[in-house]
Nucleic acid binder design. Sequence first.
DNA 1: TGTACATCAGTGAACGCGCGTTCACTGATGTAC
DNA 2: TGTACATCAGTGAACGCGCGTTCACTGATGTAC
Lengths: 223, 223
Amino acid sequence: MIAEIKRAAHRQLASEGANLSLRAIAREMGMVSSALYRYFASRDDLLTALIIDAYDAIGEAGERADAAVADRADLAARWLAVAHAWRDWALANPADHALIHGSPVPGYAAPQDTVGPAVRRYLVIVGILRDGVAAGSLAAPARVPPLGPPIPEPLAAELAAVAGGLGLQVEPPLLALALTGVTELFGALNFELFGQLNNAIDAERRAWYDYQARLMAAVVGLT
Amino acid sequence: MIAEIKRAAHRQLASEGANLSLRAIAREMGMVSSALYRYFASRDDLLTALIIDAYDAIGEAGERADAAVADRADLAARWLAVAHAWRDWALANPADHALIHGSPVPGYAAPQDTVGPAVRRYLVIVGILRDGVAAGSLAAPARVPPLGPPIPEPLAAELAAVAGGLGLQVEPPLLALALTGVTELFGALNFELFGQLNNAIDAERRAWYDYQARLMAAVVGLT
DNA sequence: TGTACATCAGTGAACGCGCGTTCACTGATGTAC
DNA sequence: TGTACATCAGTGAACGCGCGTTCACTGATGTAC
């Protein structure tokens, strides 16, 4: 039942944009709006459930794509597979993408429950970095010139704490490159899905994203 | 009068989030809601005016920052100044930032009038590239290894058309790097303003953004 | 200098709509003896 | 096998609210003669 409601909410979100209306969901399910309160305490509760599902869905999409790359040592291929899996998911579920990567919903404050699921989509990248460090291909001494611009001490400390939270043995310079790459990819998705590419790059959007993902893989140092 | 209304709308947008209500604006101005119709044909018209203003404001912020860099040949410094100007503007005007860089407003379709102003913020980057090409420091032969991953032919054609539209004499490989850099910067702003940095990078956000802007300047080849 | 008229900013009531949430309820299904 | 009762999914009416837009209007301001 809960799943059914979420599916209807999902459909409604997809067709109407970010406006989620309990009454419209109930209408679509042929129920009366008050019936939904047996399953969700409030509209915000339902919204939270949808957000968590979205984080899980994009996270799983990335994990599957990574797992499907046969040559585990080909880090660039894995990065690229994950990047395209994210884009494919976002294109197939634009409303969910907007829910988690777009402007905050007015009047809604994400509860603590969404923090865990939000991290999931990054873990697959963490896995790639870990394998690279273990294999030595990403280790700092292997790379000359040094990785990116200098990182001031307080920022390095904060990055180290992030790495620790992810259970990752990685120096701040490498983590910073990877985070920048991820930021660029989600920036590219927002540009494409929120209409910033209109009248500029229209036909070759997949190729354009592919270019950016490859460039970022190179910046991170994945080979 | 129109300016006054826009200012009130602006204030309301800032405090309430993306929900723009004609009645609330009128209330704040001590008027009756129907009075606004003397100045704007509809709510969407007002929204369009606000969007155009936002594009103009961030565009101007970037232009001023670029113009304030004394050493015109220091392209990296100019890029960095523009990047920080964009961030400062977004932090000072989060609602306007969400309006132009966030999820589309439900039920609102941006009219053609917004296309021109939307391009303005890129023109300052175009200027930096143009100066670099003119000075020779960004020209293709000056750079080894070649610029970024290969660009397939159809994408190169579309990028060339974009360059043409901007009145820019630049090869697709360089334009692609610059576009990627810009995409990363706006991705970083969305991450920061839409809460994706919470519980990860909290204290050192300016330093983190500065790092990313420097890294992207290096990727583009600005020195 | 004074009257007659046009302009026009803003009013107030009303339209029809949708929303989230509550509450007492019905009636079918399942359980216990 | 059959009765009595508890559970519980879903109903329907109502609450108070806010919204965009329309329309006939008032009354002050400015212009023309």
